[in-house]
Structures are given as C-alpha cells and as structure tokens.
Design a protein around this nucleic acid. Structure first.
Lengths: 204, 204
DNA sequence: GCTGTACTTGAGTGGTTGTTCAATATAAGG
DNA sequence: CCTTATATTGAACAACCACTCAAGTACAGC
C-alpha cells in the first residue's frame, strides 16, 4: 500500500470544531486551523476539501454530540417532561464548564452566515430543525402517557422550548455570573414543569 | 469657511447600520461600505475613524432606536405588564417587515465578536445590560402598582424576558414562516400576562 | 477673481485571505 | 532494494483586507 496517515480524522475535526465554535466562521483563518490541527494547507485541503467543507463537517459533529448529550439526559429521567426540565437545568451550568463558547454553535452560525455561505447556513438550519423535531417528539410522548394536557400543542411547545434554549445560551454569552445563568435556567425549567398535569405522574 | 459636506452623517450612519446588521462585522468589507455610503475610503475614515469605530457607532444608534420603539410601545398601553406583552406580540411580526436581519444586532455582535474586537463586544454587552435594566424597571413598576405579585423577583423576570426576546428573535432567523413566529410570540406574551395578579388591574 | 480652508478623492500601502500543486517523504509489495 | 501508491509539505498565487495620504476640488469671505 502506501504511506500511513499521521493525523486522526476525528481528532482533527474535533480541534477544528472547537476553533469554529469559539471564533465563528469568518474570524477563523486557515492559519489558525493550521496551528490547531498541526497540519499544512495541503493536508487540510486533501482531507476536508475546503474551509467551508471543514466548517460544515464541524457543524454536523457539533449537532451529533449535542443531540447525544440531550438523549443521555432524557434517558436518565423517568418522564419526558422531567427529562426536558433536567436538560434546561443542565444548561444552567454553562458558565461552570470551560467551553469554546456558551452560545450554541448552530445559532451562532445561523446569525453569522449569509447568502454567500448558503450551504453552511442551510446545514445549520437543518440541524436546528432536527433538534426542534426531537423536542416536539418529547412533548408528544408526554401527551401520550398523560403527563401533558391533551389540549396543548406539542409543536408550539417544542418551538417554545427551542427558543428558550436559544435565549438561555445567548444570554449566557453575556458578561453575567454563573448564579444568574443557573437562576434563569431554573425559571425556565419551572415554567416547563408547570405544564405537568397534577397527580398523573408525580404528586405535587 | 470651507467646502460643504455632501453627506449627512446620520444618514451615512444609518446605511452602515443596515449593512452591519445584515452581514455582521467581519463579513462587511470596506468596499461594501464604500458602495452603501457612496463614500471613498478617505471620507469614511475622516468621518468615523475606523471600521471598528463606525461599527460601534452603528451599535449605539441601533440600541437607541430600538429602545425608543420599546418606549413607544410601553406608553401606548395602560400598564407595565400589558406594555411588555404588547412588545412581545409586536416582535411576532418580525418576518412581516423587511429588515436587515430578524435577529437582534446586539446579540449577533455578542455572538460574533471575540477578544480581538473587545471594545465593540463591550459596547454590545453594555447596551444589552441597559435593555435588561429597562425590563427590570418595568417589572418593578408593575409590582409597585400591584399588578405583579410582590413575592416575585423583578430582576429574574427582567432577565427571563430578555432571554425570551433573544430566543424569539434568534428563532425568527430560522427558515420558518411568519405564522410560526407570531404563535411563538403569542405564547411568550401569554406566559408574561399569566403573571398578572387577577382582578387588580383588569378583570379576567 | 483670488485665497484660504475644509472636504473628498482614489491610487497605493503592507499584510492577510483561501487555495493550489509540484516536490518530497514514507510506507508496503514484489 | 526498487517500485508503486498515498500522505504531507510549503512556497507561490491572485484576490482581497483595512487603512493612508498627497493631490484635487468646491465653497465662503474678501
């Protein structure tokens, strides 16, 4: 055969993701990427095609990992609404962990990118739509087991939850302390739990 | 005296604001600004100092106009909570008007800018903090006239409202239709109105 | 109509951008 | 040990970036 690759593709992608998440698409230069990936331009282009392609792959990885964490949280709680509330409370700790950015990378991309980066913008939009679907699905499930009033609309609740998450994470990007973010997440979680039909799943 | 200025400063600033709001700081080049302002680089630099300076002035103008519209809405309604709810409902029409972007320019800047554009980032943060103060102030007023339960915390409510607005406007930047945004804004407005103490201001 | 002054111009600055590709390095197979 | 196949390199490229400044232009007062 031939020469062995010295760089692990997934590892390189993870490093690129961290950079893009932190600085955004435009502010991340190829020189930045060369340093972070410890690769020369030729290798980067041979592996990922273009800066835009690398960015789009980063978006996909980000969404995949984010969704996995979401599912992990859900499965640790006994009911859909409890899981969703726990997810919100978990986001309250955004300022405690060390992350490239407190804001969602998909939202950052949605707001930063325009017509000239249409493909990447569409990718971010599609991934957000997938997340919305997952939210809606959980409200649907809550309704099916009688945890949620049947007169409420899971679609509207799902979108509201997505807007809440977007708002919480954008707010967490401000110059505020951890306790403030925790309090905000707690308030959102309480609003969500207030939807629960009393006495059906748990008692009050 | 000397030669008269052919460009109105406020008008130029407004054009720059529209561009920056639409494309963000990094994606807006000086060539774009030259075309939009119909000014040559020398004039732009003589008038505004630098791209960064022009951007910061745009941020200030954006916040000033946004705050004025907010106050206008508030003053058209009989009580603080009614005014805030109307403000949210007004944002539901984000996709009906033709705007440079549906998302808030301050939030876009907060998410796009980093350490290298520290001054502009701080400006966005300060302006957002001012908006938060104004929200808190309205909840305070609602409490003083007995429209809001005295056990609730105006500071937390103000931050929650800011996160709601951030989320609503970020969501409106997605590829969704106008009715969806209206519905989301309506749900947020209803949540806010649910805080009203029954029978104190209006009847149910 | 001349002069002084301030505004405007646009070619030019040095640096950076994303991208390419011929040359080189490194492995396995024969 | 030589060939073959692939991975990697890094100099070079055209285009673009934010920005400067000497020259040109238009106006008010004289």
């Amino acid at each position: 055969m031939a020469r062995a690759m010295i760089h692990n593709r997934q590892d390189s992608l993870e490093r690129a993701l961290q950079l893009f998440w932190k600085k955004g698409f435009h502010a991340t230069s190829l020189k930045d990427l060369e340093k972070a990936l410890d690769m020369r331009p030729g290798s980067i282009y041979a592996t990922f095609g273009s800066k835009d392609g690398l960015f789009q792959e980063s978006l996909e990885r980000y969404a995949r990992l984010g969704l996995a964490e979401f599912e992990r949280t859900l499965s640790a709680y006994p009911s859909p609404l409890a899981g969703l509330a726990a997810y919100l409370r978990g986001l309250g700790g955004l300022r405690d962990r060390e992350l490239p950015s407190r804001a969602c990378m998909l939202v950052k991309s949605l707001l930063e990118l325009g017509q000239r980066e249409q493909a990447a913008w569409r990718k971010a939009e599609d991934l957000l739509a997938g997340m919305e679907d997952r939210f809606i699905d959980r409200f649907d499930a809550a309704q099916k087991i009688g945890e949620l009033d049947s007169r409420l609309d899971p679609v509207r609740l799902g979108r509201r939850l997505q807007a809440d998450v977007m708002g919480l994470r954008a707010f967490a990007q401000r110059d505020v302390d951890s306790a403030t973010v925790h309090a905000l997440a707690e308030d959102m979680a309480l609003s969500l739990e207030a939807l629960r039909k009393d006495g059906v799943i748990g008692k009050r």
